Simulated scan of single mutants.
Amino acid sequence: MASFQKYTTKDGVRWMYKYYSTIDPATGKRKQSTKRGFKTKKEAQLDASRTEQEIADGTFITEDKVTTFEQVYHQWYETISSTYKPSTKKAVISKFKKRILPHFGNLKMKDITKSYCQEVINKIAKEIKSVENTKMYINQIFEYAIKMDIITSNPLKGVIIPKKNEAFVVDHYDEDRNYWEKSEIKKFLEIVKRECSMRDYMMFHLLIYTGGRKGEVLALRWKDIDFKTKTIHFHKTLFYEKGQYVSLTSKTAASRRFISLDDTTAGLLKKYRTGQSGASVVHLHSKDNEMVFTREDGSPLRLAYPNDKLDEIIESHDLHPITVHGLRHTHASLLFEAGASIKEVQERLGHSDIKMTMNIYTHVTRTVKEQTASRFEKFMEK
């Protein structure tokens, strides 16, 4: 029979219970164990009932199988990491080290409760926006532990991601938007053309006019651009690891795509190519394996360079602040404004999941919203 006791932590009052599990072969007596971290006595009683039932059914996880969350994580990572690209490995390790292990690392898997998981998700949700992705990785550890017979149930199941207050506030439109209107784009490109190098102007022009990801644009080689068909082939992304830059194949099939170029962009690329090589337009296909955007010594641009340059221009000219990824959202917004369908935008941006496109669609420009209202008004007038 379990006994219950409350205790105080820095987060408030918690409950624990003591119970007797399996028989110790050395003494012939049942081992006494403790499970803690419950917000209420009722939660502790319900968990104790499950534990006692598992002991009776013979499905209880014995002490010799007790493993910490971090130990399971390392075993899981060793098993799954062979399927990851270097960039994904780096991102996963960083996420666990920064966001997940500080909360779960030293805890025994069997002692992690649903209420504790909810507390952690609540805390993470206050710190970052992409809590869904973090929750997904935590869930993978628990599901792996179940497969390995370390635990019998997933304490993360049923845990809710809290909604932020901003989700109910509608008057923060301008401050929160991470894209530019058409007039802001024109102003920005005029500034870049006037004050920056042709390389930087071409780089920002491509980011805005193709919707390419930063890593995709920086990984471009001249052989990826077909001036006859006016297309650009995005199929690699630039990645920095262990002191060197490498081009990695795009993560998904949807990301490996051909983008059609407008006449202005194709013309600018020809002009930039000619100026870069000193050759005539007739010889545009010489040195096709060279990278489009490089430093003076021919090495790839730093991955942070577009970010730093964009921030510098925004600050010096008091422009509406957006990120480099916001230029990609800008492209999508203008496509919607021009009348493109969600499916067309999805394919152009290389989204494997249409939900990602839909998320951008919900943040389209004021112009689109005004056009929608105008179309409705005209329809009602007929």
Rank of each mutant, 00 (worst) to 15 (best):
R221L: 09
S280Y: 06
L206H: 00
H320V: 08
D24V: 04
E132G: 07
L268T: 04
K163T: 09
K41G: 06
S260M: 08
V368E: 13
D297E: 04
P86N: 00
V120A: 02
T113F: 02
E344C: 08
Y173W: 13
K35F: 01
D263N: 09
V217Y: 01
V131D: 02
K135S: 12
D174K: 15
T249R: 08
M148G: 13
M203Q: 03
R213L: 00
F239G: 06
F188Y: 05
R14N: 03
Y19G: 05
R221A: 13
D24W: 00
Q118T: 06
F293I: 07
T249I: 04
Y361R: 04
G58I: 00
V13E: 11
D174Y: 15
R36N: 14
E347W: 01
I322D: 02
F96I: 02
H329Q: 10
K65L: 13
S341Y: 06
S81G: 06
K309L: 14
L107C: 06
S299H: 03
G243C: 05
S33H: 12
R302E: 14
F376E: 12
T62M: 06
F258C: 08
L46N: 10
I146H: 01
G211A: 05
K187Y: 09
S280F: 02
L268R: 07
N106M: 12
F69P: 09
I80S: 14
Q244M: 09
T294H: 00
Y77H: 11
I151N: 00
M148A: 14
T83E: 15
Y77R: 11
I342P: 08
I23C: 01
S277Q: 09
Q53M: 14
K230F: 06
Q244I: 09
D174I: 15
I141Y: 01
D24Q: 01
K95G: 06
K135Q: 09
Q5H: 15
A125M: 04
M203R: 00
K271H: 11
M198H: 12
